[in-house]
Amino acid sequence: MSAVLPGQQVPAQHVNLKLGPGLLQTTGSANGGPPPSASIITTRAGTLNHSANGSKWWVENNSRRYVPAPQEGVIGVVVQKAGEGFRVDIGSAHSASLDGLAFEGATKRNKPNLKIGNIVYARISLAHKDMEPELECFDAQTRKSEGFGELKGGFMVRCSLGMCRQLLDPKHFLLPLLGARFQLETVVGVNGRVWVSAKDAREVIAVSRCIESVDPDGGGMDEADVVNFLKTLGV
């Protein structure tokens, strides 16, 4: 990892290169000459990251405003029914569109009956600066739901984007710690939202408060702090 500023060139090269948030591929030619090879530049300040094999590159920074990027999993709230689909708030500058057929096994006669206020876990299928984002509730390769779709019951916790990325790291301590104490079900979206379902409301509140307390924007508690915090809650 290394710190970068907007406009810096990134040495990202791979036969199956995929660019995540904060990176842009540019091409161009000078004085009408032959086009040079594509270059990758950063569009925001943060920390440059890449996968182990170098096929995926992205820039991380801790912010509240989510910028949609293709293939990312997000948690959204249905805010409007629009024709044959829905408009969904995903925490970005613009609402996303979700087609009524963008679900596993959905047909014109058999579509999900989502209502305003329902929570969905979806994948961003289209993200462009000049277009509203589009969502799908199935895996792009298998066409199966793979966990995407309506999230029934539970409670949605809002946190920083950095906190969500930490929770998606299998090595992070929080979710395994909470899962050992509670009958817990969680879904983490990269857009600063976590859906939590537990046995009763008291446990849901305890889990939610732990997530907020570990969040770098909310105190940044470590594992020992969380254990002591749970004792004060009596759970």
Rank of each mutant, 00 (worst) to 15 (best):
G218M: 07
V15W: 13
A127H: 05
P68D: 01
C210D: 01
V187D: 07
G162Y: 08
A106E: 06
I211S: 05
W195Q: 09
D169F: 05
V188Q: 05
N49M: 14
D215C: 15
G219T: 09
R202N: 06
Q9F: 13
K18G: 02
S39A: 14
L19N: 10
R109M: 09
G76L: 01
T47E: 08
F229E: 01
R65I: 11
K144V: 04
H128P: 00
T232F: 02
M1V: 03
L23Q: 04
Y66W: 12
A45H: 03
G85F: 09
E84Q: 12
Q71N: 15
S63L: 08
G189K: 05
R44T: 13
S37H: 10
L135G: 03
G28V: 02
T43I: 11
V207I: 13
E203Y: 07
D169L: 04
S2R: 13
E84F: 07
A45K: 11
A82N: 08
L184P: 03
G22L: 07
T47K: 03
F173A: 01
P176W: 08
K171P: 01
L17W: 11
D130G: 03
Q9A: 13
K115V: 06
T43F: 04
A224L: 10
A82S: 12
V194E: 06
E185A: 11
V74G: 01
T142N: 04
D217N: 14
I119E: 04
S51G: 00
K56L: 08
K231Q: 15
F86K: 10
G219E: 09
S208A: 15
A30S: 12
N62L: 06
E134T: 14
E223W: 03
Q25Y: 10
G219M: 08
N110L: 09
L230S: 03
A69D: 12
T26R: 10
R65L: 15
K129G: 10
A52C: 00
G46Y: 01
A201N: 10
N31Y: 09
L135K: 03
E134A: 08
G7I: 04
T42M: 05
G149C: 14
N110P: 00
G32T: 05
S92I: 07
N228Q: 14
E60C: 05
A30N: 15
M131G: 00
G32W: 02
T107E: 13
K144Y: 01
K18W: 08
S213K: 13
Q25M: 15
T47Q: 08
A69Y: 11
R202Y: 00
S197A: 15
